[in-house]
Design a binder for these strands. Structure first.
Length: 421
RNA sequence: GGAGAGGUGGGUGAGUGGCUGAAACCAGCGGUUUGCUAAACCGCCGUACGCUGUUAAGGUGUACCGAGGGUUCAAAUCCCUCCCUCUCCGCCA
């Protein structure tokens, strides 16, 4: 959510930012409601001041035994007017809130203007793509043959997009999770085991509601949302809290399953492990001082990149353009791993700065030592990393002509085996 | 799931309709005293929003005592609903 004062005072900047994100702006309607709101507050507060004053007088009169009934009679009409104004104010504020929640965050000046994924900039590439002299297979062929991922039984038990990992694939995933968490721990992230369902306030806090409501599975009986990413519970961990400046930055790593309805996805994008309804992910979340958030974004990206390098997986870094980066971010990098069997880049991490956009919704602040006032902190998050596509990339990049899969060195201490066959 | 108790400012904790935005104490901040530390003493010490002020300092008003409603001229205080915590019982990985 943006600051209404910024919308009021830097209207053009906001409008241009929204335009750059390919979104429709309703700023004029917001400003009109903002005006109404302030007028009503003014009227209401004047009347309330009078009410308070007269009520105090009534107290005194009663105490000294005077008859206050005529004054009380007079206040009845004031009371009615206050009620009317408050009702009007409430409905204006509800509408205003509703509209404000639909305004996207505005991009950082360093973000390239663009409309489609084609406008994203590849800013870094790492690793050798492949130097094999045999035909590389996509991971689903390999896992089928090895019998280590069971999509069919997953469909029977839950539905499409809910596979079983069997034997060594399950162990490989567990190894990756431990590896990711250990790495995060070594770099200053506190490990957090979070709820995988959240309430409505939390879903709103990180911005899943209202703009991405359809992405989530909902347990309607209890009004609980199954998390699409650990970002939701982990960021909400500090909802409605105020930090001392010296406590910042605060860094967490959380492993959770993630649930996404992915309504509307189809075709080759969803083959095999490419896109699932349930998948595992380690998420990195930072709460930082506003002056450091763009440096923290770079180091966050570095923390995610390191994992790919240690696994020996070729990848590239994209700086997302304004039109492709999403509702809540001011700047976002995507990390894409090379899947040699599919000859395709797969997104495995997305590192973003939200500045105060989430903090404002969640009311997360710090006390500034300089001004003594409370200000909103900046939040960031990034995957570190998403599991299934890493599994797919390992299988495809590390396959042998015989259809075996070599386990990356750094994982072997976790898996206790070096080849899947 | 059943029965009971409770949720007040950073903390402890007063406060059952008007003089309470809230005592007192602790913590914190500033100062006096002091060779230094400690102690003592004095002062300050919530947040949001509106108006005003040069996008300042400040001034002023409103709201907030778990959340949301209601009663009343007036609510931390009375009533209703919900949430959370604790104790006991039941159930259970």
């Amino acid at each position: 959510m943006l600051d209404i004062k910024v919308i009021r005072e830097q209207t053009e900047l906001v409008k241009n930012g929204i335009k750059a994100k390919n979104a429709d702006d309703n700023i004029d309607a917001i400003l009109a409601l903002d005006n109404q709101r302030r007028t009503l507050i003014g009227e209401g507060e004047t009347l309330k001041a009078k009410r308070n004053e007269v009520s105090a007088k009534v107290g005194q009169m009663k105490k000294s035994g005077e008859d206050a009934s005529s004054v009380i009679e007079e206040m009845n009409s004031v009371k009615t007017r206050i009620q009317l104004i408050d009702e009007g104010l409430k409905s204006v504020e509800e509408k205003l809130e509703e509209l404000l929640l639909t305004v996207p965050n505005i991009p950082h000046p360093s973000v390239p203007i663009g409309r489609t994924p084609d406008d994203n900039q590849t800013i870094f590439e790492w690793g050798e793509k492949s130097k094999n002299d045999f035909e590389l297979k996509p991971h689903w062929d390999i896992t089928n043959k090895l019998g280590i991922i069971d999509f069919d039984r997953g469909s029977k038990v839950a539905g499409a997009g809910f596979p079983f990992y069997v034997g060594k694939a399950a162990i490989l995933q567990r190894a990756l999770i431990n590896f990711f968490l250990d790495q995060a721990g070594e770099h200053g992230y506190t490990e957090l085991q979070a709820p995988i369902v959240v309430n409505k306030d939390s879903a709103r806090g990180t911005g899943q509601i209202p703009d991405k409501e359809d992405m989530m599975y909902v347990a309607t009986k209890d009004e609980l949302y199954m998390i699409p990413t650990a970002e939701v519970p982990v960021t909400n961990f500090h909802r409605k809290e105020t930090f001392e400046e010296k406590e910042l930055p605060i860094k967490y790593a959380g492993y959770t399953p993630c649930f996404r309805r992915e309504a509307g996805s189809y075709g080759k994008d969803v083959r095999g492990l490419n896109r699932l309804h349930q998948f595992d992910k380690v998420e990195l979340v930072k709460f930082v001082h506003p002056s450091t958030s763009y440096d923290e974004l770079e180091s966050l990206r570095g923390d995610a990149e390191r994992l790919l390098q240690l696994l020996g997986l070729p990848y590239r870094v994209l700086l997302m353009c304004t039109g492709d980066m999403g509702f809540t971010q001011t700047k976002k990098y995507d990390l894409e791993v090379w899947a040699a069997g599919q000859q395709k880049w797969l997104e495995v991490s997305s590192c973003s700065n939200f500045e105060t956009f989430q903090a404002r919704r969640m009311n997360i602040k710090f006390k500034s030592r300089e001004t003594g006032k409370q200000e909103f902190i900046h939040t960031l998050n990034g995957s570190g990393l998403a599991l299934p596509r890493i599994v797919a990339a390992i299988i495809e990049n590390n396959q042998t002509p015989e259809g075996k899969v070599i386990v990356p060195k750094v994982l072997q201490q976790y898996t206790k085996f070096s080849v899947i066959e």
